[in-house]
Amino acid sequence: MATEPRLYLDGCATTPPSGAVRAAVAAAQETLWGNPSSRHQEGRQACLALERSREHVAQLLDVPPDWVVFTSGGTEANQLAIHGVLGAAGGSAICSAVEHPAVGNLLHNRQQAATRLELLRPDGHGRLSSRSLLERLHDGPVELVSVIAAQSEVGSLQPLAAMGAVCASHGGIPFHSDGVQLCGKAPLHPRKLGVDLLTVSAHKFGGPKGIGALIRNPRLTLKPLGLGGGQESGLRAGTPAAPLAVGFGVAAQEAKRMLEQRSDPLWQRWTRQLREQLWSVPGIEPTGHPEERLPGHVSCLVSTPGGEPLEGSHVVRSLDRHGYAVSSGSACRSGSAQPSAVLLAMGINPAHARSGLRLCLGPWLCEGDVAAVEDRLRALPQVVRQLCCRLTPLRWGLHT
């Protein structure tokens, strides 16, 4: 068991809710329990709080409030965007080969319902090109393009503006982006990027779990996932969770203030230092784009000093015993014995595609003892160096 203070470095999986968010949600649970659809005082109070939070989320993303459709999280928002455009069956779509499973698995499953799906392949850094999208559009009519804004396993950002321009120049093809990882961490303005449908989730940037949103350009008419009382402009039936929306709104306000700062936050400087220190460890190979990447994101392949790959999940468990919370890829595929589909799509061989390691720093690290955090971060590269020499190399042939 770890004797040192624990250090949470898995912000791509989830982030700790800030103190202001926790307090706001707790207060809202006490006072805003009314149904926002009711017309009496209790209902009106809940409705007012819901709409105020919608405005805060809209301000973060620089869209009108009526673009914001609250959902239970990123997965539901992705489903509403994709099924909403394509309908229950059929249709034609293009997506990337490095999507989160909430998009990738959904579209692959739709292929069984006669949806024609084309994949965009990334380069060795996990980046797509607008040229590849343009080439795919020559293969036939397309009803939806879906491209992730930031890849959570390797941190690479995608050229959304260039791709949005391609979609606009081809008759205004609806353009969807899973922005869950990027929202609240870097400027993300769908109107400027030409993104018609943007998925966001509160718990990825200091908000509560259980609430997200689909940012929808009203030019698109979407089919709802289910019928009901007509809440959320008829797109998401069910009583809205006003207290969670309040927490979402507070997190959006905090993120907007952070993004408006002129100097880099301390945790971003720590990220750069950690990258430099880790890259000096024999057996560590960085992944993802070196510059166009998520703030706070560090990703690599982990091998012995002689270059033999180590099982990423084993490295994660070992670091956990040393008091570091990290991951070996998307939390939604945690526990899978299969190589990372994202790393395979980037051209990495199957053995090394099981050796991925991901760390994500964020503002929560600055809320406690900063000196203690700095000490633990300085110690991490040496811990990784020791693990690379001690852990058993991955024998790919024995695990197939």
Rank of each mutant, 00 (worst) to 15 (best):
S92W: 06
H399N: 03
D375L: 15
G212N: 02
G210T: 03
L377G: 06
C388N: 12
G296D: 04
G307E: 07
L144I: 06
P36D: 01
H322R: 04
A213E: 03
A353Y: 11
Q261Y: 02
P339I: 09
R136G: 00
Q41C: 00
A23P: 12
E311H: 15
R110W: 02
R390W: 12
P64R: 11
P243T: 01
S313T: 06
T75I: 10
E374K: 13
V166P: 01
G288T: 08
R131V: 08
V316T: 14
P363H: 15
L227S: 06
L294A: 10
P290Q: 09
T287Q: 09
K204E: 02
H189G: 00
A20C: 02
C47R: 15
H289W: 07
W364I: 03
V98C: 09
L278D: 07
L193M: 13
G74Y: 13
A245V: 04
A371L: 15
A379E: 15
V98K: 13
H125A: 12
S340G: 09
P350W: 05
V57W: 07
L225P: 00
G164W: 15
A251N: 08
G307Y: 05
P122T: 05
L7W: 13
G230K: 04
P295H: 11
A88P: 00
A161D: 15
L134H: 05
V63E: 13
I94C: 01
A102E: 08
Q338A: 09
C388M: 07
A237Y: 05
R269W: 02
S152T: 11
H138Q: 11
E99Q: 12
C388P: 04
P101L: 01
R378F: 08
L398R: 11
L310G: 10
T75K: 09
S152P: 04
E55D: 12
H203A: 00
P381R: 14
A237H: 10
A237S: 14
R262L: 08
G362H: 14
E42H: 11
P363D: 14
G307L: 08
